[in-house]
Amino acid sequence: MLLKDKVAVIYGAGGAIGGAVGRAFAREGAKVFLTGRTVAAVEAVAKDIDAAGGSAEAAEVDAVDEQAVSAHLEAVVEKAGRLDISFNAIGLSNADILGVPLAQLEAEHFSQPLLSYVSSYFLTARLAARHMLPNRSGVIMTVTALHSRIGVPLVGGYGPAQAAKEALTRNLSAELASQGIRVVGLRPQGMPESRTIKDAFEPRAKATGMTWEQWLEFLAARTHTRRLMTLEEMANVAAFAASDRASGMTGTTVNLTMGSMDD
């Protein structure tokens, strides 16, 4: 098992990406602590993990609330003895953010993804690092998107937010890697099972009449494989990147766009 006896906290675990990562970590032997703003969704993932023979606990934690994140981490470390992995997979759904041209977008709606995504990643990473530094060991992770590197219309501040998260991954690593803490991001293009790809589809469907099948074909045509990545494939890479076998990987965001974007 890649993550045998590791202790992992996942933020946004009630979503498709966070849930998939939680299941993959548990399959590889990690003790996972799942958090989210809606505890029912997180508990459903925990039940799946428990039923498969894994170890999971669920908690309601708002990942943009510093006090809530800090209190939860203190409880995790008190119970498990340490923190090995922090994975931020929070999501944001707001119809006012997507589908509006930048020239028409309200400033507060442009700023919302930056404030939510970037602030949450910073808070969870900073607090995780404080628990990892005494042991000089740990992995801090997050997930971004193709929008961080390629101009995409009608996504408001979502693309700049993902780019800022990738810059933060590099900066965190520059400060923490010499002290035994790796920082790694994942950048998938789009996964049909995730909410993000559905949120991106809706404004385009309204504007062009594009069907869901046409949207998936359009995205897949840009990849070398002519298909999109699955949640399980992304989560398997996350498990490897979090493991000691990826000890040489830090300060980078792994390109999982299946060839849509050259690195």
Score class of each variant (00 low, 15 high):
168 L>S: 02
170 R>E: 13
17 I>R: 06
95 A>Y: 11
221 A>M: 03
253 T>W: 05
19 G>Q: 06
239 A>V: 03
204 R>A: 07
49 I>Y: 06
133 L>W: 04
174 A>G: 10
162 Q>E: 14
193 E>P: 02
95 A>H: 13
37 R>A: 07
207 A>K: 13
97 I>M: 09
250 T>N: 04
119 S>P: 00
253 T>H: 01
207 A>N: 14
14 G>K: 07
224 H>I: 01
165 K>S: 11
71 A>C: 07
140 I>L: 11
164 A>V: 11
75 A>P: 03
27 R>S: 12
174 A>I: 04
208 T>R: 10
67 Q>W: 05
162 Q>H: 14
194 S>Y: 11
92 L>T: 07
31 K>L: 07
135 N>D: 14
215 W>N: 13
257 T>S: 11
251 G>K: 09
118 V>K: 01
247 S>L: 01
175 E>V: 09
111 S>R: 14
79 K>M: 01
182 R>H: 03
143 V>S: 00
255 N>Q: 08
185 G>V: 03
156 G>Y: 06
72 H>I: 05
22 G>S: 14
61 V>D: 05
100 V>C: 02
183 V>N: 06
201 F>N: 12
134 P>F: 11
171 N>Q: 14
128 A>F: 00
209 G>W: 01
39 V>N: 03
108 E>G: 05
57 E>N: 07
215 W>G: 03
79 K>V: 02
87 F>C: 06
173 S>Q: 05
184 V>N: 02
55 S>K: 15
183 V>S: 02
129 A>M: 14
161 A>P: 02
123 L>T: 12
100 V>Y: 01
119 S>C: 03
92 L>K: 04
92 L>Y: 08
140 I>N: 04
83 L>K: 05
10 I>M: 00
76 V>W: 01
103 A>N: 14
167 A>C: 12
107 A>L: 13
45 V>K: 09
31 K>S: 13
184 V>F: 04
250 T>G: 07
166 E>V: 08
210 M>G: 01
158 Y>P: 01
151 G>Y: 04
107 A>H: 09
119 S>L: 00
260 S>R: 09
12 G>S: 04
223 T>E: 02
139 V>N: 04
91 G>F: 06
248 G>E: 09
66 E>P: 01
83 L>H: 03
207 A>M: 13
